[in-house]
Nucleic acid binder design. Structure first.
Lengths: 367, 367
DNA sequence: CACAGGCGTTGGACCGCTCCAACGCGACCG
DNA sequence: CGGTCGCGTTGGAGCGGTCCAACGCCTGTG
């Protein structure tokens, strides 16, 4: 069947295409009866206006560009979920750009600019240099960042309140009577991690505890390294009774190190994560963690972008979304003074490999 | 600066816009010298043709629709990576559709059809009813499925060779001297799981082993349930010395159950997964697993779709991509006859919670 | 009764590009 | 030397909408 055009509809309704166009853009100046008739004709003939023609005539496109990192992180998907749910309700569609590596990044941004397809740009979990984006933004293309990792920016963005989140975690541990609280950092070049670390320090300070530098494990995000460092930490006589990790995956490695030392979570050591990715509800024990409201962040960012496109002020500055502490079973009241001795970690060629125990996402509907 | 049009370029080059158009579509009938001149003008003025106008005039759009499930699975991202790398090289862009729940599914498909934006449709990790898609495909819109879970389909699709993959895993275990090999199923309503189970049975049969029905753990994909079942299995006198799981997340739960029983991986029980998701290289011990070539599957699907759009035959039928066995440290030679006794799993209100030991993705660059 | 004003409708130029029929022109042919 | 051919180029009619100036008609007013 030949695709119907606005002209056909006009003819069928006995009107000019101008009127039909007015109906399409629901102009108030068209007679209600006429409008209904036109709508009825459109519905019964299953008519949809051509996007290309509309875009050309109107001079603007119905697309939002979204740049996501090539790697697969839970958070990206969670943010996307929120973004999609908002965009779905708008006349826009999402064009997906996958940034594979930094080298291509500015050429990707250039491609987006040149194509002129996007009415706005959403950048998810961005950790690259920001100059290309800032330049683009100055060009007039609205840009909103969500969940930036790296450098801070003057671009409008939506972030979780990393500082306050960590403070809440600290408060929780302090309430449970912990005083020796260690911190396993993430990559400290990331602003979010810096903010979390500040939250840790200030949280201690507020309780009048002098932070012991020995209790800070420097960042890496690399599980084996983390296990090693935490193992060392736990071997100390004055080992911590609680550990806050800069994200959930780090917390997993921490928990594992605790086990490897013959200690128990949470009886001997409490562990708190950050993010609340899906699998954290299903670890063993389930992880107490600071939830980042990823879907809400996605929604907020999408809404912010849509408003900006529709001519709002433009530079709203970074929005902070508040986190919430999800208390599960990896934290408990601090143990009484002299506690179970940590078993020195097994080493040497003839020791059996350390055993492992896994985690599984809630219901992993993997193929 | 005013956006340049083809007319401006024509004027600047002292030619008609027809000629410039010919250059844009690199027609062979334009004089090389002319072509170079035009290209030079375009480059120096940073000209890009309007997508909307081109789409309208040509009557076809430069977009590929891609439907992904709302949930976050490693595989989706991995497949997407492959898709993106192929589409990037083509004149097409990807429009992202997120299918949140089944109810919206057919309306989503309808929206895609009606908008007429997509020149083709890529459906990633699809487990919904296929009728809407098949109808769409009959309409003339090319559709390619990647990594389908649910019902099989006559639509062109790209899948991993689940059957052969499991057989390879079985062969590996048999070579290591295992004879009592258990299988922890996934959701058996999924075709992929059925195929894997067939691979398991046939693998045993080939070695002349009569499959013991007691060694099949029925599917759920639900970690706690899996832990429970596997614990029961290991408590048996004639417990298995190896376990194949229908996916990696299941394998994690299996490993955990093994630990919980006081047994060791791989000395007492070998464990094999399926998928090779990123974190599996980083479990403790690292997981031996059957790798699904997700990025390659994405690439293949994208290429197939592009070919179909460009008028190739159309119905290539399902393509199978071969898997590869990644041997890590969760599998070892079968133990000699009388082996270490499984400790009955801890139960009761006053038993300490089972301890946990985590896994962490290789480098989890999470915020 | 002529005229102003408002409402609803309309014709048509235009958005930027494609593509086809037609055209100019030099080379080649009879 | 006129005619044919083919190459490279061109004018212009679409593609399917938008939007503005203009227009008919009906009502209210002086």
């Amino acid at each position: 069947m030949p695709k119907l055009t606005i002209r056909d509809i006009a003819q069928l309704a006995g009107l000019s295409k101008s009127t039909v166009s007015l109906v399409l853009n629901n102009s108030p100046k068209v007679d209600p009866a006429t409008r209904d008739r036109v709508l009825e004709v459109m519905r019964s003939h299953n008519y949809t206006p051509s996007t290309a023609a509309t875009a050309l005539a109107k001079g603007r496109t119905p697309f939002i560009g979204m740049i996501v990192p090539g790697l697969t992180w839970h958070m990206v998907a969670a943010v996307n979920w929120g973004v999609a749910s908002v965009i779905e309700q708008s006349p826009y569609e999402i064009i997906l750009y996958t940034s594979t590596n930094e080298k291509d990044y500015s050429s990707l941004v250039e491609r987006i600019r040149a194509s002129g397809l996007s009415a706005g740009l959403l950048v998810v979990t961005h950790d690259q240099a920001l100059d290309p984006l800032e330049k683009l933004h100055r060009t007039g293309l609205p840009v909103v960042l969500v969940n930036t990792l790296g450098t801070p920016s003057t671009l409008p963005s939506v972030q979780a309140d990393n500082y306050e989140g960590t403070r809440t975690a600290l408060r929780h541990l302090l309430d449970l009577g912990h005083t020796r609280i260690a911190c396993v950092q993430g990559l400290m070049t990331y602003v979010c991690c810096q903010e979390r670390y500040r939250g840790y320090l200030d949280g201690l300070a507020e309780a009048g505890i002098d932070p012991d530098p020995e209790l800070t494990v420097e960042g890496s995000f690399h599980p084996p390294t983390i296990r090693e460092r935490v193992t060392e930490l736990l071997a100390r006589r004055d080992r911590p009774t609680a550990i806050v990790a800069h994200n959930d995956n780090t917390a997993y490695a921490v928990m594992q190190a605790v086990i490897d030392c013959g200690l128990r979570v949470p009886q001997d050591v409490s562990v708190v994560g950050f993010d609340d990715i899906a699998s954290s509800a299903d670890t063993h024990p389930p992880l107490t963690t600071v939830r980042q409201p990823f879907p809400e962040m996605g929604k907020a960012a999408a809404r912010l972008l849509l408003e900006t496109i529709d001519g709002a002020t433009g530079d709203a500055g970074p929005a902070r979304m508040s986190t919430s502490l999800i208390v599960r079973e990896s934290t408990a009241r601090a143990a009484k003074k002299p506690h179970r001795r940590a078993r020195p970690p097994a080493v040497g060629p003839d020791t059996p490999p350390r055993t492992w125990s896994g985690l599984g996402p809630n219901v992993s509907r993997t193929s």
